[in-house]
Design a protein around this nucleic acid. Structure first.
Lengths: 159, 159
DNA sequence: CGTCTCCTTGACGTTAACGTAAGATGCCGC
DNA sequence: GCGGCATCTTACGTTAACGTCAAGGAGACG
């Protein structure tokens, strides 16, 4: 019978974790340098425990929502202190709310920029219609652009 | 009678432009290094023409909407070629639309992150309510946070 | 024993848009 | 002649999160 790939006693090589979480050995070693991970050793080789894997999962989650490694480190430190208890949760909650506020502010910036750009596009289109309508991008070109963009995304995602 | 500060024949020192557009001499020299500006000289000193001022204005507008200096440079190069004519407008239009697509994608990322964070906040709050409600941030603390944030913004804006 | 593959450490490179001295020049008024 | 101010050039520093070699060890295979 096959070993359960996730049972708590299990250990992982660096490559196994990298494959599972789509990251590179360099990244894991970097996190270790920063004190976010402290895997055991077998001779020279790193041996990641189930707990290390859980920490890595938290690290990557934090990254996805835009937390810096330093901020993630603060949370993980508390994780060590009280083993995922109340203090860590309270700190995470604060960090999360701060991040939400920051992200909402960023989104406002983006919306402003989009509006400014749309105004600019309209101006340019008006002028081009008046002077050189032949230079206006055509619907076909736009479709082409979108298709290229989607192909790119699929390629990255598939590979 | 005072000289019109913006009449086309006017020239500007580096400091005057910096004051007007709230940037630093270092930034203007940097743009010059990158080929975005090419002011005349009076001896060693830079002398910015009305056209230079217009270019700077475009540079800063481009920055506000998130264009890189390299991209802004591409547009400005065309600006030189046909003096603000059709080719430049067509290129700007393309760049603007590309930027809009990129910004909308960024906004989706942000929205996803915000949702993920809100889910996380809810989970954490539930657990804290059950175990350590004393650690929950209170409404008063939240007001305090907002006030500090607003003060910061006003301070920056006013100064 | 040679080769292969995975692992290690160490250390420099990358990117963008400037910041920050350090040291020199030049003009103004006194 | 000198202090003070604006300007100049040159050139290294900053930040984040790794990427990219380089050089070397350890175990497995045939």
């Amino acid at each position: 019978m096959p070993t359960d790939l996730r049972r708590p006693q299990r250990t992982y090589t660096i490559r196994q974790l990298c494959l599972e979480f789509k990251c590179t050995p360099r990244a894991l070693r970097f996190y270790e340098d920063k004190g976010l991970l402290t895997p055991a050793r077998d001779g020279m080789n790193r041996v990641y425990s189930y707990k290390d894997r859980a920490r890595l999962k938290l690290i990557l989650q934090g990254k996805r929502v835009g937390l810096s490694l330093a901020e993630i480190g603060e949370i993980l430190d508390l994780y060590d202190l009280d083993d995922g208890g109340a203090a860590q949760m309270a700190k995470s909650l604060r960090k999360f709310k701060e991040r939400i506020v920051a992200l909402e502010s960023q989104r406002e910036d983006i919306d402003r920029a989009i509006n400014e750009l749309k105004v600019g596009c309209n101006n340019l289109e008006q002028k081009l219609i008046a002077t050189r309508p032949d230079l206006l991008p055509r619907a076909a070109d736009y479709d082409q652009m979108l298709r290229q963009r989607l192909d790119g995304v699929e390629h990255v995602g598939a590979k």
